[in-house]
Amino acid sequence: MPVYPAYNEASESEYAPYLVDGTSEISGQAFLVQKNGGTVKAAGRMVTLDPVTTISSNWWKQAGRMWKYRMSLPPSEGFTSARRSVTADADGRFKFSKLPAGSYYLRTELTWDVAYHGIQGGILAAEHEVKPGETKMVMLNSL
């Protein structure tokens, strides 16, 4: 189980620049290609975007990319307030608008059940940076 340190005012204050609207955008598509060549899209899945800070970096290393701890979040008001989430469309496409420039952790879950083999897939996650006014297109397609 992840162990999160006590957070102080200085680490919580790192979220302040991310609590306002900006001029950047991250959009893309979340999917996985199966061993047989089929494609599974993240249709209807929640996609989250978390600013990279001391608190979120600790969470990312311990739990953010691990299926086992997919529900674990740090006990941080800043983390919760700054997190953005959208639901992917039928093609697994998503879009985050009005972002402040900076670095972000992008994440979603993509799983499916295979008869006699169980659950396949897992957490799709990546770190991305956007500059002021930048529109970035990304493919979220690796475990």
Rank of each mutant, 00 (worst) to 15 (best):
M1D: 06
P2Q: 12
V3T: 12
V3Y: 11
A6Y: 14
A6G: 01
Y7L: 10
S11N: 04
P17Q: 11
L19G: 01
L19P: 02
L19F: 05
G22D: 06
G22C: 09
Q29M: 11
A30W: 12
A30Y: 09
F31S: 12
L32P: 00
Q34F: 01
T39E: 15
V40R: 13
G44C: 08
D50G: 00
D50C: 07
S56R: 06
S56Y: 09
N58G: 06
W59P: 02
K61G: 11
Q62W: 06
Q62C: 02
A63Q: 07
A63W: 08
A63C: 13
R65S: 11
M66D: 05
M71K: 14
S72C: 07
P75E: 09
P75H: 10
D91M: 06
R93Y: 02
F94T: 03
K95S: 15
F96A: 04
S103M: 10
Y104Q: 05
R107H: 04
L110Y: 03
L110C: 02
T111I: 13
W112F: 11
W112V: 01
V114W: 04
V114T: 15
G118M: 13
G122I: 04
A125V: 09
A125Q: 12
A126L: 10
H128C: 00
H128V: 07
G133D: 09
T135Q: 14
V138K: 09
N141M: 02
S142G: 09
